[in-house]
Design a protein around this nucleic acid. Structure first.
Lengths: 170, 170
DNA sequence: AAAAGTAACTAGTTCACCTAGCTATTCTTT
DNA sequence: AAAGAATAGCTAGGTGAACTAGTTACTTTT
């Protein structure tokens, strides 16, 4: 679902009565986008599995690392809202990540009902080791581009984003 | 995880000592890619929820529709291999989709151990109703592009894909 | 000071997956 | 042609990560 397969793209192109080359170019681009998506999903899965974590655990860690780099304190409630899970589930998630040594619970300085959640050095190191190289490559891939090309890519991404945003599954 | 956040991209850019504008353009592009990803995930979730299905159910339906448009018969075993789940789980998935009226089981014409799985008209209509507009928009977004721009976008996608493929979570 | 609200936790449920093992059928080997 | 191996899909029972409901401790409001 969710993605025009080759066949579907072909059918749509046919309906529109476009020229053959135009259609083929469009299909090539949509295929490339689909491939990128698949590669990213696969990378996520590999990363998750190598760290024996769930998707939510990993998203949480990313959010925490980012918040910490901005010196922004984070409570379990914040994390539950961010991931869209119940506070009860968040208790379990933080339990897991605390047991695996990725986060620590600490008392909130002013509100004794709350906690603050921090990543450990271990989590930080593990994430950077896995993803730093990717981030550098992604940055290099776009930093090299001349400004005109950047504009073209930005317009492309904006339009495909509009297309998926328009799906309102009522 | 999995994606360079603004902050991380910034740090990497800083390390590399690039010019300010170059850095800002790169960040803008990576942000746009991240936004597209988020929009697509959200769209998937909406679609899944509106059809009360799991991710795998939806992927399966997409695969089936595609196979059918090519007159290619599909067995439960094929589907299990495609989704990477056990045949036992596939029995449960097909049970669910059969109960909800999205697929039918039929005897295999030559091998009485096997079954064939077909989508129903209902599934076909529901999927097309939800996603046809998106497919058209995506196609339009790329069909309008001049060939040079297509090349630029393809190179961009190939490079970011290489970046994520390089993450080998050992 | 009492009442209402909030944060995180515990207990018990659900659901989508899993593994192991079963039955029916087909393929391979002698 | 019969016996053994392989294959397809199923059932039974288990796991884990989410859920809801309700608890405890604390804070805010009236």
């Amino acid at each position: 679902m969710v993605f025009p397969t080759e066949t579907e793209a072909d059918r749509i192109a046919g309906d529109a009565g476009d020229s053959r080359e135009k259609r083929e170019r469009a299909i090539a681009v949509l295929d490339a986008l689909r491939l990128y998506r698949a590669a990213e999903s696969a990378m996520r899965r590999r990363t998750r599995e190598s760290m024996s974590m769930t998707e939510n655990d990993l998203l949480l860690l990313r959010y925490l690392l980012r918040a910490q780099s901005q010196e922004r304190p984070v409570t379990p409630g914040d994390l539950a809202r961010y991931l869209g899970v119940s506070t009860a589930s968040m208790t379990a998630i933080v339990d897991r990540l605390e047991a695996s040594g990725h986060v620590r619970r600490e008392p909130h300085p002013s509100d004794r009902r709350r906690l603050l959640v921090h990543t450990t050095e271990h989590a930080d190191a593990q994430v950077r080791a896995t993803l730093h190289q990717m981030h550098e490559r992604m940055f290099a891939a776009v930093a090299d581009m001349p400004p005109e090309n950047t504009e073209i890519v930005l317009r492309f991404l904006a339009r495909v984003q509009d297309a998926v945003d328009a799906v309102d599954a009522e």
